[in-house]
Design a protein around this nucleic acid. Structure first.
Lengths: 183, 183, 183, 183
DNA sequence: GATGAATGAGTATTCATTCAT
DNA sequence: AATGAATGAATACTCATTCAT
C-alpha cells in the first residue's frame, strides 16, 4: 500500500498523484486507504520518514568510521558508497519527496538533522585527522556533504539499477583531493 | 506581472500557485493576466525562458575563458563566480521551475543544452591544459559541473542577497584541488 | 458589420460566436461594435428583424395573389417560390437565429405574426376558391404552411446557391395535391 | 438524474444549461454528476442515444408495414402515428438536441441513418405499390419524410400531452393525397 | 468617434475526504 | 474492517461589457 503510493508519487509527482490512483494501484478502496492514513499528506510524511530511517541505517557504518577516525582511504569510500546506495534505491521518489512544499516541517527537520549529523561527524573527523588539509573543518564538511549529496543523486539518476563504478570512484577522487589535498 | 507570478511560484510552488493569486498579487484582474499569457503553463514557460537567457549571458565570460585556455587561477573563479551569481538571483524560483513536470520540453532541452555546453567547454579545457590532472576529461567535467551547480545553489539559498565570499572561495578550492591536484 | 456578425453566427452558432470574433471579422474594435449595438443580444435581434423584413417583402407578391383569389396554378408556385427564395439566401443563419433562446420575444412575435398572416391569407384563399377541396380551411392552411416552411428549408440546405428546380416542383405538387385533391 | 438533465436542457437550451443547475435539479452534488458522466457533452450524447433508440423502436412497426407493402390506408396512418408519438414525448428536448453543434458525429450519423432508412423504406414502398402515383419514388419519399417530420413536430409542440386527433388526421390526408393522388 | 486593455462573474471539471452500508 | 458513492470547495480559463485615452 505504501509501495503503491511510492510508485504513483514517482510516476506522477506529488501534486499530480491522486489518492484514487494510489488506492487502485494498491488494489484497495480509498475508504481503506483513509483507514490507515488520515490524509494524502500523512502518506507522504510516512514515505519521507521511511526514507530518513533508511538513510540513518545506511549511513551508520560510515558515521562509525568517521567517529573512530578511520583513515581517508577507508572513511571516504564508505561515505560515498553509503550515499550512492541511498540515492540508488529510488531516486525519483527521493526527488519528489524533497520538492518544495511536499513534506511538512517534521520530515524537513528530520532530514536537516540527519544531514547536519553527517556534516558534524565529517567536521570532527577532519579536525581530528592529521593527513587532511582544510583550513575550516566545519565549512569544508558542509561543502563536501553538499557536493556528495548532489553527485550521488546524479549518479543514481543516470545509471538506473546499479551505479556506475567509475563514476563512484570519481566522486571518491573529488572528495579525497578536496579534503586531503593529495591523491 | 511576471514578477508577481515569480513571487507566487516561489512562495507556493508551481502546482499550488493559483492564477487568481498571481493576478491579485500583480494588482490586476484574472482577465488581464490571460490577455498576456494564454495559460498558467505559458507563464511558467516564459519565466523559464528568462532564466535560460540570463544563464546564457552570465556564463558567457566564463566559457570564453575556458575556450581560450585560460590558466586555472583565472578560469575556475570565473566559472564559480558566474554559477553562484546565476543561482543567487532567485534560488527558490529556480528550484520550482526545474521540478519535474513544471516546464515543457522546449525549456528542458534548452537547459540541458546549456549545461552540456558548459560541460563540454570544461572538458575541452581540461584536455588542453597541462597543469590539470584528470584521467578522463569528460567524466571529470561532468562531475565538476554537477558539484558546482549544487554548491552554487546551496550557497545562494543559505545567504540571501550577496553570497558569502568565504563559501565561494571554498568552492573554488574544491574545484582547483579536484581538477589540478594542487592548491 | 452586421454582415460580419451574420457570418460569424452562421459559422459558429449563436452561443459559440464571440463579440471579439465579430468585431475582428468586421475589421473594427469591440469598442466600436458596442457603439452601435448595446449588446450581443441586440445584434442578434437586429439580424432577426432584418430577416423578418426581408421575409415580409419576399412574401408580399404571393400574399397579394392569395388575397385576390388567384388560381392554384398561379398562387401555389408563387408561394412556394417565395418561401424557397427566402430560405435560400442564408439557410444556416436562419437556422441559428430561430434556435431556442436566441432571439427575444419581440422578434419571436414578429415571426409568429408573419407566419400567421401568411396562414390566414392562405386560409381565406382556400375558403374563397371553389377549385380547392379542404374540409377545414384554417387547419389545412396551418398544415400546408408548416410543411412548406420545412420543405423550403430542406431544399435550401441541401442545394447551396440556387435551389434544385425538381425539388421545388415537387413541393408544388405536394401542395397542389393536398389542397386541391387534383394535379 | 438524466431526467433532470433533460429538463434543464429543455428549459435553457444546450449552451445555457449549466452542469451545476443539472446537479441541483437532480438533487445531487456536482461531483456525483461527474461520477456517472465524464462531461456535459457525454450527458447530451446519452440523451441523444436514448432518443435514437426510442425512435428506432417507435418506427419499427411502420417500417414493417412499408416493407411488406401494406395498403396506403394501413401504412400511412401507421407512419404518421409513429412519427407523431415520437415527437410527442419531449418535443423541446428533441429540438435542443438536434441544434447545430450539440451532439457529436456518432449521434448525428445514427439519426441520419435512421432517417435514411425510413426514407428508403418509403421509397421502396412507393415503387412497389400500384395504387400510388409518384413520378420519382426517391424524391417523393424524401419530400414526404421531411414534411412528415416537421408536421409531427409542430403538432407535438402545439398540443402538449396527447396530440390533437384532428391534426393527426390532417397530416394523414396530406400524405395520402400527395402520394396516391386520391383520398 | 474609435480603440483595445481591463474587468470579473460565470463555467466545466477535479479530487481530497467522508460516511452509510 | 472494507467499500465506493457522495460531497463541494477549489481551479483554470472565457467572454460580454466598460471606459480611459
Amino acid at each position: 500500500m505504501l509501495e503503491a503510493a511510492a510508485r504513483i508519487f514517482e510516476e506522477r509527482g506529488a501534486a499530480a498523484a491522486t489518492t484514487d490512483a494510489i488506492a487502485r494501484r494498491a488494489g484497495v478502496s480509498i475508504g481503506s486507504l483513509y483507514q490507515y492514513w488520515p490524509s494524502k499528506e500523512a502518506l507522504l510524511a510516512e514515505l519521507g520518514a521511511c526514507h530518513v530511517l533508511a538513510a540513518h541505517a545506511a549511513l551508520a557504518p560510515a558515521r562509525e568510521r568517521l567517529a573512530r577516525g578511520a583513515p581517508p582511504d577507508e572513511a571516504i569510500p564508505a561515505l560515498v558508497g553509503a550515499m550512492v546506495d541511498l540515492h540508488a534505491s529510488r531516486p525519483r521518489l527521493h526527488r519528489v519527496l524533497w520538492e518544495d512544499g511536499v513534506l511538512g516541517d517534521d520530515a524537513r527537520h528530520a532530514v536537516a538533522a540527519l544531514h547536519r549529523s553527517v556534516c558534524d561527524a565529517l567536521a570532527r573527523w577532519l579536525a581530528a585527522r592529521h593527513d587532511v588539509d582544510v583550513s575550516d573543518a566545519a565549512l569544508a564538511a558542509r561543502v563536501a556533504c553538499d557536493a556528495l549529496a548532489a553527485l550521488a543523486h546524479g549518479v543514481a539518476l543516470s545509471r538506473r539499477g546499479g551505479a556506475a563504478p567509475r563514476a563512484v570512484r570519481e566522486i571518491e577522487t573529488l572528495l579525497r583531493r578536496y579534503l586531503t589535498g593529495r591523491d
